[in-house]
Design a protein around this nucleic acid. Structure first.
Length: 339
DNA sequence: AATCCGGGGCA
DNA sequence: TGCCCAGGATT
């Protein structure tokens, strides 16, 4: 980059990546569909968390056509537990657009027009699946670059991001954009860690101005307090003849639309409450929910509710909060909520 | 430019 | 407990 030029930087990085990269399932294919699915799942989600979902999702929907033809509830059920469910809806919308267009888009601009594909994902697919010279900029790359340049700018600001995007583009090795991009992210994920970076193992330590200055652990700078809000709520598990009372969130609900969840106590006028089954915490973005779960009885299902068996639950998108609530007891028989 | 969207893993 | 994660859409 500076002292020795971008070429030598890329050479050191790529040599390291060739030896030290993790064996991840999406690195064993060049199928654009599989690359695409992996990139969507990896948005704001760690690789280790993605792996089991990735394998299951692809065995369930092996091709773009299979995904396009599926029922949305099946797609959501396969995504259930991964979070950010608009990713799954947009993935299927995009699959239908790809089928309608007659093929997978190959260039950055066309990829960028698909729902759920922003600047990062378009660059990732264009480079990894099609070898095009677009530099990715994700949380890992931002951190690596801030440290390489010892740059204290706020990475939450869009100006800083635009500047770093240019920087990444200058460093990019045009002979192998796929490996270069993945190597930058791999470095951030396994060596250039947010706290306690492993600088002794870093293949580009000689290029790093933050290491020389002793500021690596202070970088990157990210302003934005974002206070957490605490919300307490009581959920009720109402059972009748081996079935559980659940309700489906409306299709136009802002978050987790279409997901099945347990009723809160205020949703059930006339419910008779029994003992407490336990409590648990559940964080959604910046809200900390503290749920208490009680069992209750009710003669008939109120409007919008249904009685569901354990087998039926298994095939439906179930909120993670509902799963945690069901783990507190033994209902329904034989149903073990995955988590 | 600020907010919202899930959920888990880590020190 | 707070922070971060192969971000994107909406306002």
């Amino acid at each position: 980059m500076r002292r020795r030029g971008a070429r030598n930087f890329a050479a050191r990085l790529l040599a390291w990546y060739a030896r030290q990269q993790r064996d991840l399932p999406w690195r064993r294919t060049r199928d654009p569909y599989r690359i695409w699915v992996s990139e969507i799942m990896l948005q704001q989600t760690r690789a280790q968390a993605v792996i089991p979902y990735y394998e299951r999702f692809l065995s369930r929907f092996p091709t773009v056509a299979a995904l396009a033809e599926a029922a949305e509830s099946d797609v959501l059920a396969a995504w259930s537990g991964l979070g950010y469910y608009s990713r799954a809806r947009n993935l299927q919308k995009a699959a239908r657009a790809i089928v309608a267009a007659g093929g997978f888009p190959r260039d950055y601009e066309a990829l960028r027009r698909l729902p759920g594909i922003g600047p990062y994902t378009a660059a990732a697919i264009a480079s990894i699946a099609f070898g095009q010279p677009h530099a990715v900029l994700d949380g890992n790359v931002l951190r690596v670059l801030a440290r390489l340049e010892n740059d204290p700018a706020d990475i939450a600001s869009s100006r800083t991001r635009a500047r770093f995007q240019q920087m990444a583009g200058r460093l990019l090795e045009p002979k192998d954009p796929a490996a270069f991009n993945q190597a930058m992210m791999e470095l951030g994920a396994t060596v250039c860690l947010p706290r306690a970076p492993r600088c002794l193992l870093c293949p580009v330590a000689q290029d790093c101005r933050a290491l020389a200055a002793g500021t690596a652990e202070q970088l990157p700078v990210k302003l934005r307090p974002g206070r957490q809000e605490r919300i307490e709520q009581t959920l009720v598990r109402v059972e009748k003849r081996g079935r559980l009372l659940l309700r489906q969130r409306p299709a136009d609900a802002g978050r987790m639309a279409g997901f099945w969840e347990l009723p809160a106590v205020e949703d059930l006028p006339g419910v008779r409450l029994n003992g407490a089954l336990g409590s648990f915490r559940h964080t959604i973005t910046r809200h900390l929910y503290v749920f208490t779960v009680r069992s209750g009885t009710l003669a008939r299902a109120p409007r919008g509710f249904r009685w569901l068996s354990g087998a039926e639950l298994g095939a439906l998108p179930l909120s993670t909060a509902a799963r945690k609530a069901l783990r507190l007891g033994n209902f329904p028989q034989g149903f073990v909520p995955k988590l």
